[in-house]
Design a protein around this nucleic acid. Structure first.
Lengths: 359, 359
DNA sequence: CTACGCGGTTTGAACGATCCAGAGAAGCCC
DNA sequence: GGGCTTCTCTGGATCGTTCAAACCGCGTAG
């Protein structure tokens, strides 16, 4: 078993100094082409790879990003974070970064983990996958000048108080998603389009409901009729089924837009003879149903759904985060770059059988 | 901004040498109690935490474990790995290890990642979350003497050729799960219990089917009747629905055991008026349905399902893996410990409405 | 009289990379 | 030819930790 090759090994073999080998890897432009090639050949030949820990000792950077793994989420929708995480890992990898996981039972525990990961591993930054009112975690990170980005808006309590310091975030425009769903249904001839969402007070839920409401209001529907078309229940298949049944009885809508695939699955079960069979092609218009998040279940049962562009979200998050990391390292203040660091992505409506009913 | 405290800082302040501080942390038993306490106080006071990269330089261990994040799995069942990963991260954390993620597009790419992670980060070991026939990855890891454990049996092609070298693994006994499902249904008075599974040739699928088959055979049912009660289709809700409908027509079973929650959901949709409503209590015995993996969907729709003990699986995997890491480090051959390093866990049947039909 | 043991601690040398200051050579202008 | 800049490369110091060996005074066995 020969010892692992180091800079020294390569340097001796290429008849240059360690520093030159280091330059070949980190600042190739300052090395004479002939030398460069010779060193590269030796590196290839001996299979040299830089040792991350040794590098980190000098540079004070680990090329590692941290992410808290949430306790597997409620209902069917856990798959969203799962896919985001996959995209994030993949894209970080091609940019030379790795993702390290941790868990915590609450926000304070999470802050404790930040502290430990920063002190012992010198993690370069964090990705937060959910945010809420008055988040102590973002405040802590900003106070300690730690690079981070959130996937999810900060949802400030009373609109943007412009005094409040802001941080980088990436999010998907939920309102645009439900609006697209409504517009798709309107174009197909529907006019009575109900909304099954969550109770008031959930940031994400309120956003999605607003999209539906604005799109419907634009058709000239008065507010009291809108109120009758809307219901807020806890997330879940059974809840969705009950809500759909109630709405069918009271206002007989011809289509449902839902805040989640779970709710939509419930609505689907009430309006279809049996999930998994196509709506009969010549049928006289079963109610259309559209869900949200495009989970694997939606694909499986032919449910139309609003898909979040998670790969792009991951990519943009990384860009914002790594910009901060780079800026922090070479001391530049990154100026108005920060102010611009908000990305709101448009979701895509995925059309499947459940919204293809004849009308 | 004062500089981060190091061993030197603590040592000076406690009027001892660096090495003594190091001993306080790594070998407290060889330090005189008075000194120990004094040093501990200083550590607490200045908030000292050892620098992982520096430690790694000497010890050649990173306290980091690698895991490949699979492209989010087919159908509804991705949640299983998700929950395993969460448990793994959590338990690793309390044992002083961290989980680092990576992705790869195929087995060779995964091996490339192993190599890179070992060379640059000196990862201590890997957890593989799925295995298949003649796995090149496990062979590579064994050849390179890298500690690893698989969650999933090696599924050797033609039974256990006892010449083949073996590795540590943890798995859940799928056959025991389907057997438990059958026994539960038998006890409830069912006799005609069908099985909806996957086509021959899938390791996990064959295992689950065998459990059903043996349990049914034990009731005295002849083979040709068993054959009629069994069907193999691709995973998916629609496939499950079609399979259940066919079976109902041909042999009219009173219960279904399924290889996955997706299939079970399909069966449920065919046998229930609407998902999400309870089977009517006074009903004359709707067919019972039992799924596999106890995914969030099962919980949501009241589907009985066989649950894998993922937290325990994660814990046992870690134990096996860290045993290897420790043994490799202090050069002991870990002897028959290895031979014993197979853990087969029993799943738990979670009873919900879908199997509670009167009979 | 010397060598060795005791438990606790100190000291110097790694580990493998990058940063920094400066050396040497070549090219250019006056 | 001297002085200056520019380009390329070198050697030593450094990051924070652990390892291996040496050290302490003192009693005891050989």
């Amino acid at each position: 078993m020969e010892p692992r090759p180091t800079l020294e090994t390569v340097a001796r073999r290429a008849a240059v100094s360690r520093q030159t080998v280091s330059n070949v890897l980190n600042s190739p432009h300052i090395v004479r082409p002939a030398t460069l090639q010779r060193v590269l050949d030796v590196i290839e030949e001996v299979g040299y790879r830089p040792h991350a820990a040794a590098r980190q000792m000098r540079t004070r950077r680990s090329q590692v990003l941290g992410l808290r793994l949430q306790p597997s989420a409620d209902g069917i929708n856990g798959a969203v974070l799962d896919r985001f995480l996959h995209a994030l890992t993949e894209q970080a990898q091609v940019r030379g970064y790795r993702i390290m996981l941790f868990t915590a039972s609450d926000d304070d525990g999470e802050i404790g983990q930040y502290s430990e990961l920063l002190d012992t591993l010198e993690i370069d930054g964090f990705v937060l996958t959910s945010t809420h009112h008055d988040d102590v975690r973002t405040r802590w990170l900003m106070e300690h000048d730690v690079p981070f980005v959130t996937f999810g808006r900060p949802w400030t309590a009373t609109g943007d108080r412009d005094g409040a310091p802001s941080h980088s975030w990436v999010d998907v425009d939920g309102a645009a998603g439900t609006r697209a769903a409504v517009e798709h249904l309107l174009a197909a001839g529907h006019t009575s389009i109900a909304y099954i969402g969550w109770p008031d007070g959930s940031d994400v839920g309120d956003d999605r409901r607003a999209g539906w409401r604005r799109a419907m209001a634009a058709t000239g529907l008065p507010a009291h009729e809108l109120d009758a078309l809307e219901v807020g229940v806890a997330d879940g298949v059974a809840q969705g089924a009950r809500a759909a049944a109630r709405l069918l009885e009271l206002v007989a809508p011809t289509a449902f837009v839902c805040a989640s695939d779970s709710l939509a699955l419930g609505a689907l079960s009430v309006t279809r003879p049996a999930i998994g069979r196509r709506a009969d092609p010549g049928g006289t218009g079963l109610p259309a149903v559209i869900g949200f998040d495009d989970t694997p279940v939606a694909r499986a049962v032919g449910l139309s759904s609003v898909a979040q562009p998670l790969t792009e979200a991951a990519g943009r998050s990384l860009t914002l985060l790594l910009d901060q990391v780079a800026a922090r390292h070479d001391g530049s203040p990154l100026e108005e770059h920060t102010a611009d660091a908000h990305v709101l992505l448009n979701p895509n409506l995925v059309i499947r059988d459940s919204s293809q009913t004849a009308h």
